[in-house]
Amino acid sequence: MQKRHLWIALMLAAGTVPARAETIQVTIDRLVFSPATVEAKVGDTIEWVNKDVFAHTATVKGSWEVMIPPKKSASLTLKTAGPVDYFCRFHPNMKGRLVVVP
């Protein structure tokens, strides 16, 4: 028991405990993603909460797409690091950005 506590304390001190994956919410209200830019880590989940009566998407050209039905939520777990710009395929004037760190 004692030993394990010490081990955990050491890991915390050294910052080697992998941070737990988080769920980060992005709200869609009147065709606006907010926050427009989200910083996240690989393994985190982005949850888009659509308050509009319109269907939207979060789309990355040539990569992934999440459909977000009206008044519903949809999620995506981030698998790769790097910044990505996404947009809504139905309303390309809606834009967002994810900055994903390893």
């Binding site: 009147r30 065709l31 395929r89 309303h91 390309p92 004037n93 809606m94």
Partner: peptide, 17 residues
């Protein structure tokens, strides 16, 4: 009307695409 404008602007870009 402002929401309508954003919808219409989005559709204009979608139509151009």
């Amino acid at each position: 009307l402002e929401t309508g404008l954003k919808i219409f602007q989005g559709h204009e870009q979608h139509a151009e695409h």
